[in-house]
């Protein structure tokens, strides 16, 4: 499934310039070491973390998009860095759990 389709279906807010990508799955974690060890290329990553290292990790593993949940505010520096590294950052007011259900319903595999 394409990222743009997911953004539309789940009314996600885009915080960075968005490049459309193929989404391979979902990974939820707020620990960077977990993401590094277990997230896969093309995953969308649900997290409540908003610091700059999120961008580094997402870039390293080629995450399709980071979705910041709970509607948390993302610092400007993080957004700036994400634009520089072409990392997509989206936002949702839902919790990670609620968003997980929505993603499955939307038909994401």
């Amino acid at each position: 499934m394409k990222l743009k389709e997911i953004i539309e279906k789940l009314s996600l807010v885009t915080l960075t310039n968005v490049e459309d990508k193929e989404v391979s799955g979902v990974f939820i974690s707020d620990m960077l070491s977990d993401v590094m060890s277990s997230a896969e290329t093309g995953n969308i990553w649900l997290t409540v973390q908003t610091h700059k290292n999120v961008v580094s990790a997402a870039n390293l593993i080629d995450i399709a998009a980071v979705i910041v949940t709970n509607g948390k505010e993302v610092p400007e520096g993080t957004v700036e860095l994400a634009n520089r590294f072409h990392v997509n950052i989206l936002s949702s007011p839902l919790s990670s759990f609620q968003l997980a259900s929505k993603l499955v319903e939307a038909g994401l595999k």
Partner: peptide
């Protein structure tokens, strides 16, 4: 080490 979750990117 990162892939094993034993080191931090930072």
């Amino acid at each position: 080490d990162c892939a094993r979750g034993e080191a931090e990117l930072s």
